[in-house]
C-alpha cells in the first residue's frame, strides 16, 4: 500500500490523534522498520507517523519509586545514563551488547520493545527488572494512559498488547530493593553485531547465602521473551550452592521451549541455558 500521509508531530497529543485514524505505521529510530520494509516483510500503512520529534517521549527521569525511560531514548543514551547505570546495571550491560554503535545511536528502547523479537536485547533485563510498558491513546478529547507489566505485554513474535491507537510512551522500571543483584548474559561469538542465540537475565535480592525475590528471564527460547516462573520458584530462597545451581539450571532447561533455527538448534539452546544459568548462579554466589 502506498503511503498517503506523513506526519512528524511534536506533541504526544497530536501524535495520538493521527494514530486514532487507523492504518498507521509508527516510525521511531527506523532501524527495524527500514530493513523490514525494504525486504518486503512489512509494508507501510497508509499513514506514516514519525514520532521522533515528540520531546516528552525522549527523557529519562525519576518518578516516585521508579525510573521512567522515554520510549524514544536510544540504546546509547540508556547505556550512558547515570540513573540507569546506578540502578539497572544489567540493562546498561544489555545495551552494550546491542548491535553496533551506529545502531545503538539510532535504535530506541520503544522500538526494541514494540518490535517484540524473542531475541530483543533489552527485553530480558527489562523483564527481570519488572518493567512496565506505559501506553497512551486519545480516544476522545483527553490523553489516556495505562500501564501493562512487560511480562504480559508480549503476545508472539512481533506482536504485543499495544492497541493500534496506542503509543508506547515509556518503560517504567521500579527502583530495585536494597541488596539487589542482577546479571545479564547474551550468547554470541562477538561482543555485539550478533542476534542472541539465547540470552539470560537473573536478578534477586541477596539474603545471606540465598536469593529472594528471584526473577529469571530468557531470550530466544520461546515465541516471546520468557519470564521463567518455575525456574524462579526453584531459585527462590534456596541456598546458592552448587547443588542449587544445578537444580535451578535443570529446571530452566526444562522450562524453556526453544526451536531449531539457523542460529542454533533447540538442543544446543537448552544446553546453553543449563550451562550458563549454572555459571551465572555460581558467579552471583561468589559476588
Amino acid at each position: 500500500m502506498a503511503v498517503e500521509h506523513y506526519w512528524a508531530p511534536t506533541s504526544l497529543s497530536d501524535a495520538l490523534e493521527h494514530l486514532r485514524g487507523g492504518d498507521v505505521t509508527v516510525l521511531a529510530g527506523g532501524t527495524d522498520l527500514m530493513p523490514q520494509t525494504q525486504a518486503g516483510r512489512v509494508s507501510l500503512e497508509r499513514g506514516l507517523l514519525n514520532v521522533r520529534r515528540v520531546a516528552e517521549l525522549h527523557r529519562i527521569e525519576r518518578v516516585d519509586g521508579a525510573v521512567r525511560i522515554g520510549a524514544l531514548c536510544t540504546i546509547t543514551e540508556i547505556m550512558r545514563d547515570p540513573l540507569v547505570g546506578e540502578h539497572f546495571a544489567m540493562l546498561a550491560d544489555a545495551c552494550d551488547h546491542f548491535a553496533s554503535d551506529q545502531l545503538r545511536n539510532a535504535a530506541t528502547i520503544g522500538g526494541n520493545v514494540c518490535n517484540a523479537s524473542p531475541a530483543g536485547d533489552t527485553l530480558v533485563p527489562l523483564l527481570v527488572l519488572d518493567a512496565e510498558a506505559e501506553l497512551a491513546s486519545k480516544p476522545g478529547a483527553r490523553v489516556e494512559r495505562r500501564r501493562v507489566p512487560l511480562a504480559d505485554f508480549f503476545v508472539g513474535p512481533g506482536r504485543t498488547r499495544r492497541a493500534p491507537d496506542e503509543l508506547l510512551c515509556a518503560i517504567r522500571l521500579p527502583l530495585p530493593p536494597p541488596g539487589f543483584v542482577g546479571r545479564f548474559f547474551k550468547f554470541g561469538t562477538r561482543p555485539a553485531l550478533d542476534i542472541a542465540a539465547i540470552s539470560i537475565g537473573i536478578g534477586g535480592v541477596r539474603d545471606g547465602r540465598t536469593l529472594v525475590q528471584a526473577r529469571v528471564a530468557y531470550g530466544a527460547v520461546a515465541a516471546v521473551p520468557l519470564r521463567a516462573r518455575r525456574t524462579e520458584a526453584a531459585l527462590e530462597g534456596a541456598a546458592l550452592d552448587a547443588a542449587t545451581a544445578d537444580g535451578v539450571a535443570a529446571t530452566a532447561r526444562d522450562e524453556v521451549r526453544p526451536i531449531d533455527d539457523l542460529r542454533a538448534s533447540a538442543w544446543y539452546r537448552k544446553e546453553l541455558v543449563f550451562n550458563m544459568t549454572r555459571r551465572i548462579l555460581h558467579d552471583v554466589a561468589e559476588a
Binding site: 561469538t189 562477538r190 561482543p191 555485539a192 553485531l193 550478533d194 542476534i195 539457523l262 542460529r263
Partner: peptide
C-alpha cells in the same frame, strides 16, 4: 541459501 545477509553470514568483526 538460508542466510543471504550479513546478519547471519558472519564475517569476522574487529573485536574478534
Amino acid at each position: 541459501v538460508r542466510n543471504p545477509g550479513f546478519r547471519d553470514y558472519k564475517l569476522v568483526t574487529a573485536p574478534e
